[in-house]
């Protein structure tokens, strides 16, 4: 069972960003053999619903219930589709805020497709100049094809091709990784503490980098 999380930072209702996210999700699910067959489980994270909880998280330092569930979903994802609208030549502030409050290692080794929407194709480099370095920082494995959809692209067959190519790359990356994640959750870390003698040894051993 592959856990696919689809992250969308679209704000409109309906949203072209969420529409692109849905197309990518559908293409990935089809290649993995379908949801009904129990091969893949899709969880959608719509950041619009989390705008207030994210602001609260910034001011209080802890995530409310709904946001904590979304962060946990991303942490547990086998693969991620991440889609943002382009604002001011980059990913949106809401999208970045969600990434800001992710655990540092939440996406380590996770295959990711990056995608973005914008009013004009002249923003398409945002994929490679903003999204790709951001996910590289998180040590995610980003699929070679990113998908950018300007308004015009929703009437162009080329978009489907790119969606299919990106979905195929994501599935190929998945086959190269273990399907069960080994990153410990917060609960697991607390259940398996570092013994104090080891902490003493580390304190005396010098900087760990």
């Amino acid at each position: 069972m592959t856990r696919l999380v689809v992250l969308s930072a679209g704000l409109g209702v309906p949203s072209s960003t969420t529409l692109l996210a849905d197309r990518l999700a559908a293409a990935v699910v089809r290649r993995l053999g379908g949801e009904a067959e129990g091969r893949v489980e899709v969880e959608r994270v719509e950041l619009r619903r989390l705008a207030h909880p994210l602001a609260d998280r910034l001011t209080t330092g802890f995530a409310g219930e709904e946001l904590a569930a979304a962060l946990e979903a991303v942490h547990g994802a086998d693969a991620l589709v991440a889609v943002t609208p382009v604002y001011a030549a980059s990913y949106s502030g809401l999208f970045k805020t969600f990434v800001d409050v992710l655990d540092r290692d939440a996406l380590e080794g996770t295959p990711v497709v990056v995608a973005a929407t914008g009013g004009t194709p002249r923003h398409s480099m945002v994929l490679d100049h903003a999204l790709r370095p951001l996910f590289a920082h998180l040590r995610a494995v980003v699929a070679p094809t990113g998908v950018f959809a300007a308004t015009d692209d929703f009437g162009d067959a080329g978009l489907d091709d790119r969606v299919e190519r990106a979905a195929g790359e994501l599935v190929a990356l998945l086959s190269g990784t273990a399907t069960t994640r080994t990153r410990p959750t917060e609960d697991e870390r607390l259940a398996d503490p570092t013994p104090f003698e080891e902490l003493l040894r580390r304190a005396g051993a010098g900087p760990t980098g």
Binding site: D56, T59, T60
Partner: peptide, 13 residues
């Protein structure tokens, strides 16, 4: 915690 969640949310959380 000011300028963040409402008093009601914060007291429940």
């Amino acid at each position: 915690y000011g300028h963040g969640p409402s008093l009601e949310d914060f007291t429940s959380q």
